[in-house]
Each structure stands twice: as C-alpha cells, then as structure tokens.
Amino acid sequence: MTPWLLGLTGGIGSGKSAAASHFADLGVHLVDADDAARWVVEPGRPALSEISQRFGDAILLPDGTLDRSTLRQRVFQDPAQRRWLEELLHPLIRQEIQNHLSRATSPYAILVSPLLIESGQYRSMQRVLLIDVPLELQLQRSMRRDQASEEQIRAILKVQTSREERLRHADDVLLNDRDPDWLRSEVKRLHNFYLTLKGGKP
C-alpha cells in the first residue's frame, strides 16, 4: 500500500527537527526539504554546473562544492537572478523529494519543510502537522541555538509565513512549549493516531 504523506512544518526555533527525529526513531520514513535542496547542487549534478556557468567559479569553494553564502549574496541583491535560480532549482528539489518519498515503506511518510506553506508543498500532502511555539520561547531558543541577536531572529520571522497562516493550514498542532521528554511523548501519541488513518484522514 502506498504510504500517505504528512507535511511537517514550523517556524524557526519551533523544534521541528527534534520532532522529526522522534518520528524517524519510530520508523517513519522522512525527507527534509533542506537536505533535498543541498543534494540537487552537489558536485557532479547538472544544477551545479549550470549555476557556475551563470555566476562564474567565484561561487565554488576550493573543493568544488557550492559556496552558498556567496551565491545567497549574489541573488539577494538581484531579483532577476533569484528568479532564475528558483526556476532552475525548485523543479529539481520537487523531483528529489518525490524520489525519496517514493522509497518509503512505512504506513505514512513525512516531508519536513520550513517553507511547506510558503512554497505550496502542503498541497501535495494528505495532512499537515504544525510544530507550534509561543513567540517569546521561539525567540529565546533561536537566539541561543544560532548565537543570534533578537533583531536578527525577528528579521527572519518577518519573512517567514505568519503563525496564523500556518495554523490555518494545519490539520494537527503540537504545541512544543515544555521539555524534550514531553515532545517525545506527544510525537508518540500522534504517531499512534497516524497509524489508524487511511490516506491521512480519520
């Protein structure tokens, strides 16, 4: 039977990676959209040679891998270049995600994506799980984890989809405002519920 697809998302500092790893520990097949975005630009993949042809070898590190921060600066300042890059990479990332999800043998499979809502990826999911967190806790966790200032984190939050928008698209919400053991037990509870679903629906 084909596994149904669960989209797992959450803002910066929400704990979505921790939640995802608990699902993986329970034997659920998962793909991280951020990993897929890295895989498509690995050395030897066509996308990397197209990017270096367009931007020159300055965007490659000495070992031949992509210098992400240089590329980010280049496209950040030039909307036309950013569009070109998105048009090149988005279909490849979609295909990469599809390939990895198609190998799933668990009853359901998970796509972990911080941009699940913004990118429209949620449309190809049968169900959406939002890892939610109160703003103050989100700021504290992100500042501690990324060694960043409150201003930097607020700037990131500003460009991410609002919490209200995420809540609007979520079928399930896990409020991650307690300790790690509680998160693990909540993931286990959701997992047991998900095992009862057919095609992501009760």
Rank of each mutant, 00 (worst) to 15 (best):
S21K: 15
S21G: 10
S21Q: 14
L26I: 00
G27M: 08
V28G: 07
V28F: 09
H29I: 00
V31H: 06
V31T: 06
V31G: 01
D32C: 04
A33L: 06
A33P: 06
A36K: 05
A36N: 05
A37N: 01
R38T: 09
V40T: 09
V41H: 02
R45N: 14
P46D: 14
P46K: 14
E50C: 10
E50G: 01
I51T: 04
I51D: 01
F55C: 03
D57N: 14
D63T: 09
T65P: 02
T65L: 05
R68Y: 11
T70R: 15
Q73F: 00
F76A: 14
Q77S: 14
Q77V: 03
P79C: 01
P79H: 04
P79Y: 00
Q81N: 08
Q81A: 15
R82F: 03
W84G: 02
L85D: 00
L89Y: 10
H90L: 09
L92W: 08
I93R: 00
I93Y: 05
R94H: 15
Q95F: 12
E96S: 11
Q98A: 12
Q98F: 07
H100A: 15
L101T: 00
I110V: 15
L111D: 09
V112R: 10
P114M: 10
P114K: 04
L115E: 01
S119T: 08
Q121G: 07
R123G: 08
M125L: 04
M125N: 02
V128L: 11
V128T: 13
V128C: 11
I131H: 05
I131D: 00
D132M: 05
P134Y: 10
L135Y: 01
L135M: 10
L135F: 04
L137T: 14
Q138H: 03
Q140N: 07
S142I: 08
S142F: 01
R145K: 15
R145Q: 15
